[in-house]
């Protein structure tokens, strides 16, 4: 197993970040352990729960399913970089408005996934939202409220 560290640059939340990572380090662990961006959560480490969802070059991915070294030079958006200053992203606002969480652990992944789902044009009806958001598990099962939040964010004027 190679264990030497490799220096890479990621553009994280608009800022280039230079980090030295183990070649085995996933993007998820790089965000959490190297950059201290712990808003991105590890729920399963196998791409099954969606808690680690981030935007990579604007598209939603499971950060646990890609190695950090593979993302050299790419743009990563995490929950910490979603709001513009004090102004929350409309999806964050919608999650607050609809009470779309309980314990909050899956919430960052849900929100990033919702941003991706809306950008993909899949969030047109509650039915398509249910399908499009089914890669993100919520064991508290705030699903009804999550669907309403995504619908609200996707359909309100000036939605992302």
């Amino acid at each position: 197993m190679p264990t030497g560290r490799i220096t890479i640059t990621l553009e994280v939340n608009g800022t280039p970040r230079v980090i030295a990572v183990d070649p085995r380090t996933t993007l998820l662990d790089a965000l959490r352990e190297c950059l201290g961006l712990t808003g991105t959560k590890k729920g399963c480490d196998h791409g099954e729960c969606g808690a680690c969802t981030v935007l990579l070059d604007g598209r939603r991915i499971n950060a646990c399913l890609t190695l950090a070294v593979m993302q050299e030079g790419h743009r990563v958006t995490t929950i910490e970089g979603l709001a513009s200053g004090a102004a929350l992203h409309p999806v964050q606002t919608a999650f607050l408005a609809q009470d779309a969480f309980q314990c909050g652990f899956c919430t960052p992944g849900q929100i990033l996934s919702a941003v991706g789902c809306i950008a993909e044009g899949r969030a047109t009806t509650r039915e398509t939202i249910r399908e499009g958001m089914s890669g993100n598990l919520c064991r508290c099962s705030a699903y009804p409220e999550i669907v309403e939040a995504v619908f609200l964010a996707a359909t309100q004027p000036g939605s992302p």
Binding site: T78, I79, L96, D99, F101, T107, E148
Partner: peptide, 23 residues
């Protein structure tokens, strides 16, 4: 019906600032 900002810890939960033990 849910109402906006009902949960007092909502803001930290939607911004990723809620700190869990592993964080």
């Amino acid at each position: 019906r849910p109402q906006s900002g009902h949960r007092v810890d909502g803001l930290v939960k939607v911004t990723g600032r809620a700190r869990y033990a592993g964080d």
